[in-house]
Design a protein around this nucleic acid. Structure first.
Lengths: 149, 149
DNA sequence: TCATATGTTTGAATTAAATTCAATAATTTA
DNA sequence: TAAATTATTGAATTTAATTCAAACATATGA
């Protein structure tokens, strides 16, 4: 009998959830089919991108969170956006932003521990186009994804 | 007739969602009551903190995203965690982390535009305990909350 | 101002999904 | 290896989501 929880967690990280129309109906004082109608519109016009779960990441093997500031090669032919999209493919990366200031990209990376992060950074952050990085590791998450921990 | 969408969006930002057991059942090849059982356990032991929606934040009046690096007063009696918890109360703040390196806190802040961010920073970042900040504004979000945009 | 078009809410009926629970099966513990 | 614990399943029940036509509201344009 295989343990299905890791698979459930993985699916819930990016989707496999839905709005609770009945709860929204009570809280807004509307009927649930009114909520249904409005949510379908928000989904159709791209306002809502996904429904997902937020975890205590220490309990799902992603307790080590690091913010990585990235400088890109000036001579490189790829744009920051192209490199960012490539990085966004990695499941360890929670967010990718092109930012102002002394750095081009800001990544938020989640791994099990510092060793796994080292492996990740060897693999990923050495990819062409990346010149230099600076990592800020999280010692304590107080709020994430608008959810207080 | 009042527009209920802002209220729906606000509720979906932190909760009012649920896992789709039937979808998870199909994708994992289990029965939906097995999924139900396992998810209840993940909720009970605190692994799952919340279910929420992810938005195209430009469409919900939060198009301006800024990472704020924070230095705290060394002479201040409050701990970084206390100050972080205070900051976490603001709805504009998506995440708060205590980090390693030359800064104590790293905030992710979402506002409508740069003017609103200025108002926010005057109000919040001048609170006691905060010595100095450096802001990195996001020019383009490529991935957020594990969801590619 | 009035008629028309567009967008939103609702009630009622239908369909689908979540939940419960007792029985069974698998795994762990002693 | 027996007993205890934990996980899965089928079947019945309960709850929620979805559909759709009708009513209502708001915006648009003569």
């Amino acid at each position: 009998m295989k343990n299905i929880r890791p698979e459930i967690i993985s699916l819930l990280k990016e989707g496999c959830c839905a709005p609770r129309l009945s709860e929204l109906a009570v809280k807004t004082g509307s009927k649930s089919n009114t909520i249904h109608y409005n949510i379908k519109r928000l989904e159709a016009d791209g306002t809502i991108k996904a429904y997902k779960a937020v975890f205590d990441y220490r309990k799902v093997g992603e307790g080590f969170c690091t913010f990585v500031l990235v400088n890109l090669d000036r001579g490189e032919y790829k744009s920051p956006e192209e490199i960012g999209r490539k990085l966004a493919e990695y499941p360890e990366i929670e967010s990718v932003d092109i930012v102002t200031g002394g750095w081009e990209l800001l990544l938020k990376v989640r791994t099990e521990n510092i060793d796994e992060f080292y492996e990740f950074s060897k693999k990923v952050l050495s990819m062409t186009g990346i010149e230099r990085t600076q990592s800020l590791s999280s010692l304590r998450q107080i709020k994430t994804e608008f959810v207080r921990l």
